[in-house]
Design a protein around this nucleic acid. Structure first.
Lengths: 142, 142
DNA sequence: CTGTTTGTTATATAACTTATATAACACATG
DNA sequence: CATGTGTTATATAAGTTATATAACAAACAG
């Protein structure tokens, strides 16, 4: 949570959750911390966390209700996703390319990142599952 | 140039130039259109174009002076670049991963994009070089 | 039932960003 | 000199980001 960063706080939270799911630190069915609690941990307003969770809901990555709070629930992508992803990827890959990275260097770095990701759907978390550190998934403060 | 997009106009222009250089449509030494001209072509304010060019200058991708205007000139990256790139790449690779794309599918799509890019420094453009459509490089309106 | 937690909604506000508009200046060119 | 162009300075309107406060609704523990 870098307050000085150009990227908005709610975006940073959203991105942390996205990466957290991909890397297996947050699993399908797992609950995210309550908005007010996470906001207190980060020292920010709970509306900012609420906005991040709402983004994740719109993206089909969490379900959110009064009963359960925000729960990781990865849905299929929207129809336009591949095209949008391609557009963004073109820009980021171009940046690396312009900086002199070869095709193989760029792909190697992508592989290193992808190797950190874990398969989804392989492990199902029971409703009352609790980790070693509490009832909620952790969203890193780093 | 999508005015309805969430991404700011100046960012869109910057990104178009970045991709344009990577794909060889804009070459090292080539001049970008004057700010007022490009602004007129896009139907936007010339300050917005100026801001895009200034971003590119800060990124070390164009030189800009009263004499020459904005000229493509790709400099080495700043020291923090690899880390920043990695952070961003993690997020959008995670997005693809969460949507069910396999490692190979993701890499395949990266390869398809990288295959559109051309080597830099292989061809040097003479000072008076003009394409079929004018003295300045084209920044696509699509 | 009572009190607490938590999601949700509404309103207000301050600071910042985005985009436009206008004007003026510096400087190079024809 | 007139023109084109980069550059700088203001001003303004609209939108975004983050905070603050308040209130309500649903779930739950005691």
């Amino acid at each position: 949570m870098d307050v000085g960063s150009e990227t908005p706080l709610y975006q940073q939270i959203r991105d942390q959750v996205v990466v957290g799911i991909a890397e297996g630190r947050l699993r399908d069915g797992e609950a995210l911390p309550p908005t007010r609690q996470l906001a207190a941990d980060f020292g920010i307003n709970f509306h900012t966390v609420h906005k991040a969770y709402d983004l994740l809901r719109q993206d089909g990555l969490v379900r959110v209700s009064r009963k359960t709070g925000a729960v990781v629930s990865v849905q299929p992508p929207s129809p336009g996703f591949p095209e949008l992803w391609r557009e963004q990827a073109r820009v980021w890959l171009a940046e690396a390319w312009l900086r002199g990275w070869t095709r193989e260097q760029v792909l190697q770095r992508c592989v290193e990142i992808l190797d950190q990701f874990v398969e989804r759907g392989s492990q199902v978390v029971s409703d009352s599952a609790g980790g070693a550190s509490g009832a909620h998934g952790e969203v890193s403060e780093g």
